[in-house]
Design a protein around this nucleic acid. Structure first.
Lengths: 338, 338
DNA sequence: CTGTTAGCGCTTTCAG
DNA sequence: CTGAAAGCGCTAACAG
């Protein structure tokens, strides 16, 4: 690893001049520039980013905290965040908090403000907001992305989408198709991360003067397996339903498999709709009808907000809500049988 | 962000002493230690990792290069690599090379040896080995993980598994079940990354004195969609097959859906087996029988090798092959109809 | 247009 | 047991 001094010596200049040509600062004579560039090539020089970060008081990395990369939503979000970060010439440091016994506190403490200029939090519902506020107090910007409730500000800068609207759109699609007996499978506690999606389901039903029947509603873990298991139980004990609103794609795919296992045809016997539109939703049988949330936009806006916060601290923590929601009709929904 | 100087001032000592108590170096009096610790707490001090990296000539991060996090194998590998890195108190920097127009060269040049002490490469078959060798020449260790062919050393330290054996085990399982007409769907070019798995398929057939029929073999992209499309074509134009060897899980799941679409029952009409055992393999309908490769072990061994290489440079690049392979029987395979 | 000087925050000899 | 001094590799004033 050549250092800037060596390059400078090689080119017969000082480190300052090398920096100047490499960073495009100051004015440098053409001949000198050529000599420097030649020396850089000859020595295969690459600046030490740690040293640069130290003096510039600014690091080239951003930290991303998420629950677990193994939940298929996160890789998609992470990829977009990575792309956004790269487009700003930043690198992404990741932390799967589910496996840190302290929920990522140590990661945050070590990384925030030294290795990383800021931290992006992919919301998974059980956020320890105080933890992030204490990071902010140290002057390190934090933004929460995929915040589900525009009506309730977490007190930390965030990028949100309207999850209630998403839940409502999904349910409304079922109603438009003519369904009147629509159960729900919510992949969080009632007051948990999918509370908004759940509220959207109830709103749609109420506006259509359809009853909200607790007997037809279940809460489960946000996994394929628990979606499968819970749907199996719900579908065996409640026979009258023609459609199911599921609050997330992964458990919805479990629902599809449970229905098949029971000999129920989707959508002929039961329609299934959900929210998110992960890649897998197009790889299920049948393809899953779902309300797509703006994953890409939330990732890009989050990175942008984070970077902006490294430049200026606003008096109030901003919230940006991305309105874009889109019903993606595939083949898991259809009209109820007459 | 408090600095070590401020902490020292607060405690009435010098930075040296602060370092000593924080890093456990030297001998420090109990009273002094307590004062320092109190000062650390009072100022909410966290060491600047960039500064530390600079003086220690050693960075707390490792870089992971992979094709694209969106291919479901990578998140699983990445999670394990992350866990392994964390267990050594390192952080992971990731790069999705598929989206870097230069295949990650710039990432490598900027990161390797300054931000990151080493780079871990998750093999996806189209590796530019020269690129990595030039990084090694700069004294930065590189290890390739998930190398598929133990018989052929890439010339760079690597962790390998025996993909030929995996392909053979999968095919052998079909043969053991009584299948004699076994087609193949290889998710790479014939000489591409799945060449070993493909060779294993042929080996098993030949050892069982079964013919290898080119008509029943197809090559496709390593995606769900192309698996679906290619299987559809193969299955419509070749009627005699009772089983299919697919070289990877994701296209195999596409195969399952194609079969269902065509009205073929799996495994009654056609058995499907593949290699890898990604999480999705247990979330398909039917569950996919597949040969599990040692993802976790490869991730941990790779991190360990990388770290070892930062300590000592061996004369020859090591290769460690993880022998562990395991047939995971689910429900996509069964005996052929009599 | 280029060089000199100082310093980012930390750790490590080496003295005391 | 604690402090003083030097330096990691780089960049930003400021001179010249």
């Amino acid at each position: 690893m050549a250092t800037i001094k060596e390059v400078a010596a090689h080119a017969g200049v000082t480190p300052t001049t090398v920096t100047n040509v490499l960073r495009g600062r100051g004015r440098v004579g053409d001949a000198t520039r050529d000599r420097v560039l030649a020396a850089v090539a000859a020595t295969n020089y690459h600046p030490n980013l740690n040293a640069r970060a130290l003096v510039e008081r600014k690091s080239p990395t951003l930290a991303l905290m998420l629950g677990c990369l193994t939940n298929p939503f996160y890789p998609e979000f992470t990829l977009q965040a990575h792309l956004a970060a790269r487009s700003e010439n930043r690198f992404l440091l990741i932390c799967n908090t589910d496996y840190e016994e302290d929920g990522g506190r140590q990661f945050l403490n070590e990384v925030a403000g030294s290795l990383s200029d800021g931290v992006l939090v992919a919301n998974k519902g059980n956020l320890n907001l105080e933890q992030f506020k204490s990071i902010e107090k140290r002057g390190v910007p934090v933004v929460i992305s995929i915040w589900e409730d525009p009506a309730q500000h977490p007190g930390i800068p965030c990028i949100a989408f309207d999850s209630t609207k998403a839940g409502k759109m999904a349910t409304q699609h079922l109603i438009d198709l003519g369904h009147q007996h629509i159960g729900a499978l919510i992949a969080s506690p009632a007051e948990g991360i999918h509370a908004g999606r759940y509220a959207g389901y109830r709103d749609a039903l109420e506006e259509a003067n359809l009853p909200v029947k607790t007997k037809q509603i279940r809460f489960c873990e946000d996994t394929y397996e628990d979606g499968y298991r819970t749907a199996f139980e719900l579908l065996t004990t409640n026979k009258g339903m023609t459609a199911l609103f599921v609050s997330n794609d992964l458990p919805a795919i479990g629902v599809l498999d449970a229905a098949a296992e029971m000999g129920l045809r989707v959508p002929e016997d039961i329609s299934v709709v959900s929210v998110t539109n992960i890649h897998m939703a197009s790889q299920s049988r049948p393809g899953l009808t779902t309300v797509a949330i703006p994953t890409t936009e939330m990732a890009f806006e989050a990175i942008e907000m984070l970077l902006e916060l490294t430049r200026n601290k606003p008096a109030q923590p901003p919230m940006k809500v991305i309105e874009k929601l889109r019903l993606v009709e595939r083949h898991s929904t259809g009209a109820p049988k007459a």
